[in-house]
Write a protein that binds this DNA or RNA. Structure first.
Lengths: 366, 366
DNA sequence: AGGAACGTTGACAGCGCTACCAGCAACGAC
DNA sequence: GTCGTTGCTGGTAGCGCTGTCAACGTTCCT
């Protein structure tokens, strides 16, 4: 026998259809594709829905249509400032669209990512945003088999699964080192934490720049798998100094580390930039107001998230972008921490990327 | 006539049931309430599900059961470090449970919050986490009428809608000011940004402490509606100095501002803490490694998120907490920026809160 | 032994929506 | 006038799962 459960009280599409004097299916069409209705019925359904305060039941819709209006987002970290900017962009872009965001945290584990991917895909998302280009082969296969648009964010590389938006961490690091060279520095150290694939590629960029200048030495590189922090920046810098007290510059794989280095220099009474130059990565908001102001490589994180979500939604709705791979570029922001006194303030080096318009974006908007 | 659509290829519960040699409903029960099955059938269904790689269709489940397994989370900001810590706690707690998180950003607007609330409630969430205690009356009514557990986070106050977890911003601010008094400071300035309800209550706490000591002056307070940033900290401090060059301490409504003040002091060659003492709020990771190290009020953000989600899930599953209102307390962390040389290093002042176990939690875990 | 109580299982119907076609009117082409 | 063609609308039948209740077998009590 059937169920007795109270019919949940909510008004259904059928009620709207009845009030509008149309069939339920016509009412349904009003929400999916209003253009297909005659103007008369369209307005009738519209006002009926408004009058009754109709809210569609997404579960029923998903079940009947065999697809959801959910965009899955897989990012490695919730606390890293970099990702909160990206996320803000994604959420901003999704607002107003009919898609909702389902967020999950891979904690920098590609195995965890694979597990989450399986979970997501089983629910037939409308689209997917994944971080980076280093998936497991299993994940890669799932992504390629998925019948929804996919955007890989944070970096660009060969063989996009579908769409891709980011920049070259390798080139960005090279540009940072080139800037230090231009300022007359030679013994440039590298410190990096966590060493996820993107940090690894920054290291690679650093190494290639140093080797090109025949300045590379292994002992100039200090890294750790530990998650990044300001305190860690100080500790790694201390290590670096112990390995080679003669360094004259440090390229930090992110800004937290750079701030830590700055504090450590202050603690040791090392003059910045006179004795040691510092360059960070990401250009978080505080870099511009440190004393001395800290140089960094600016990346368009908010724009990346926003564009990724916009591209994805467009693709879901059938409007594929002309360019599936978007290089957002970067820009070396030269500040006091790396400019020698005799500096002639040359223009900042910029990364490739057609979309290299560098609007002043707050890296932290609260 | 019926539909021809490919049956989506996926294995359904019916397939699992068939392989296990039970009825679909029995298989269903295995997932909802395994205890209700005999051990024999339980293992049969379990292995059948595993063999087929069965993944339940959440939309169908939601439609049939008239409820979802979604926890709605409403927070004011995605970029504020404070909320990323809370979020990390929430996501960590939800992991492993069958509930998924649906996150939305109110952008510090209670009208936006009301709109989102309406949206969420229409989808019958399993539970809700909302920020703070300052909802519109309309929102408040909706929350009270909602037939799901609700947790208010970030602060505690009278009349919880349901459950509540946080601490007293008022008391925390008072404690910070008391600490400055104890260090011999009298002309204590306040700087605050954004001025959301919680910052407002920190200001209230500051004002009450100052008035109690008969030291309150309006010109010692500098606030703005602008979102917070390190740079802004420097600017507000500059304002404060202009209003009263005689101040001997600053209580900053958050740590970004405090860092900005520190940099501004360095720029102006004001000695910290000799000429100006600084206390921040939240105790973000960098506070401990600044030079001088910066005092702050530690708040248990990660724990707050984690406990909120745990309480909520427990309540959804019918295990209501003994205590619906949880005060997580705070702790004034006294560091160099506010300790006078003659300081006798008294023990740090702690907030109320039964759960005042102050485990060392990294405020930023990456 | 009879029956109540319990634990376990299954049949049935339906949650609210949409895919698929069919049907119908209006229109133009021949 | 007949036959497409187009544009709009509706009927039917599910999507995959679970609430409800009935039915069954077993145990325990009187």
């Amino acid at each position: 026998m059937g169920r007795k459960r109270t019919k949940s009280g909510k008004i259904r599409l059928a009620e709207v259809a009845e009030l509008a004097g149309v069939s339920p299916i016509t009412a349904s069409r009003f929400f999916r594709n209003p253009e297909a209705l005659s103007v008369a019925k369209r307005t009738r359904v519209e006002s009926a829905a408004k009058e009754l305060g109709y809210v569609p039941n997404l579960a029923a819709r998903a079940l009947a249509s065999q697809r959801t209006e959910v965009i899955g987002v897989l990012i490695p970290s919730l606390t890293n400032n970099v990702f909160s900017d990206v996320l803000r962009g994604i959420y901003d872009a999704s607002e107003g669209s009919r898609y909702s965001i389902q967020l999950s945290n891979t904690r920098y584990s590609i195995l965890q990512e694979e597990k989450l991917l399986r979970l997501f895909l089983a629910q037939k998302p409308a689209g997917l945003i994944v971080t980076g280009i280093d998936q497991t082969t299993e994940s890669r296969a799932m992504l390629e088999a998925a019948d929804c648009p996919i955007v890989q964010i944070m970096e660009i590389g060969p063989n996009p699964v579908d769409m891709m938006i980011g920049f070259s961490h390798h080139d960005a690091a090279r540009a940072a080192v080139a800037h230090l060279f231009a300022q007359g520095h030679r013994k440039v150290g590298f410190i990096g934490a966590r060493m996820d694939p993107r940090v690894q590629r920054r290291l690679d960029g650093y190494v290639s720049a140093m080797k090109d200048a025949a300045l590379f030495e292994q002992r100039l590189v200090v890294t750790t798998a530990t998650p990044t922090s300001v305190t860690l920046g100080g500790a790694l810098f201390t290590d670096l100094l112990a390995r080679d007290p003669g360094i004259d510059a440090v390229f930090c794989a992110n800004d937290d580390l750079a701030l830590g280095v700055l504090f450590e220099c202050r603690r040791r009474e090392i003059a910045v930039p006179e004795q040691i130059a510092i360059v960070g990565f990401n250009d978080l908001e505080f870099m511009a107001s440190a004393v001395p102001t800290l140089s960094s490589v600016r990346t368009n994180r908010y724009e990346m998230g926003k564009t990724a979500a916009t591209m994805l939604i467009d693709a879901i709705d059938g409007r594929r972008p002309e360019q599936p791979v978007l290089d957002l570029g970067f820009k070396v922001i030269e500040r006091q921490s790396s400019l020698s006194r005799r500096s002639d303030n040359r223009p900042a080096a910029s990364g490739a990327g057609a979309a290299n318009k560098m609007v002043a974006l707050p890296s932290s908007q609260d």
